[in-house]
Amino acid sequence: MSTVTDSLLKVSNLAIEFDTDEGQVRAVDDISFSVQAGQTLGIVGESGCGKSVTALSLMRLLPQPMGQIVSGSIEFEGKNLAQASIKEMEKIRGARIGMVFQEPMTALNPVKTIGKQLIESLLLHTKMSADKAIQAAVAMLDRVGIPSPDIRIAEYPHQLSGGMRQRVVIAMALICRPSLLIADEPTTALDVTVQAQILELLKELQDEMGMSVMLITHDLGVIAETCESVVVMYAGKVAETGTVYDIFDKPYHPYTRGLLNSIPRLDSPSKSVLNTIEGMVPGLLDLPSGCRFQNRCPHADETCTARAPTLDARSATHEVSCHHWLNLAPHKVS
């Protein structure tokens, strides 16, 4: 997005490489995006497109020593996180940037009470006394909708249901009132009715605390409902980025269109043939030459195999990475 007036987080030309047995793999290649203050940015893509790796790199939590940020900058509250020291990152993680992962059971320590885990970051990042911290933790549990929080605080994660655990993880991520919350598939492991509860809770807390949210998901329904702007990723690159209306009303990239067309919708006729994207996501070790989507794209020609497209601005908010987007008629997905 080119209008960066008051962006909280600005990622520029980020590239991430992994050392594997088969050689150096570029999992994320030259991606740029920004998160505006108080807004929600959605990152959408299929497995292996690099969306989770991007999230981990913002927190400098890439698996070490295999994963490295090889170029680019991550500007957050006046600091370049790509260059920050371990000490500096410790002050930012949990305090300024909170994180919620997909599987709440793996994010929680099974042998510590949820109270202990909640006050940990308060004691680490603030000068609060233990008593005050416990009070704050009870208040936070109450806020995320845990019934009888003063009793629950002494319980262990396994005593809670999946939805309740995710609420605890959200409480943990937000207890220090960070300005950015990174949520990586926060509702994927939950049932739809619980997902609805959690998404609503996140929205309420966001409005209350004025924080920004970076939401990573494969579910286009969740994106449409919660995000102001969207980044569509494919094989480690940004395919298209824009406001949620740009992406859903006027998708230009053939991949975005393919994705939107291939989801079964409640109001479409039963057993109709769904549109599909032929083939599958290429492995990072055998990417096609030129445009990475070229071998699955219905519009591909010699230009697409010859060179990679650049991200072209279609409007002030909308950017597309495709050689042929100008020739593709604006397209409303039914």
Partner: peptide
Amino acid sequence: RSLLSAIPIPDPHHKPDRIVLQGDV
């Protein structure tokens, strides 16, 4: 009804008229 209303619709113009269930199964 609540199950249907909980499904996120991939259309930003759709304003969900959601029946949010309390509690867990």
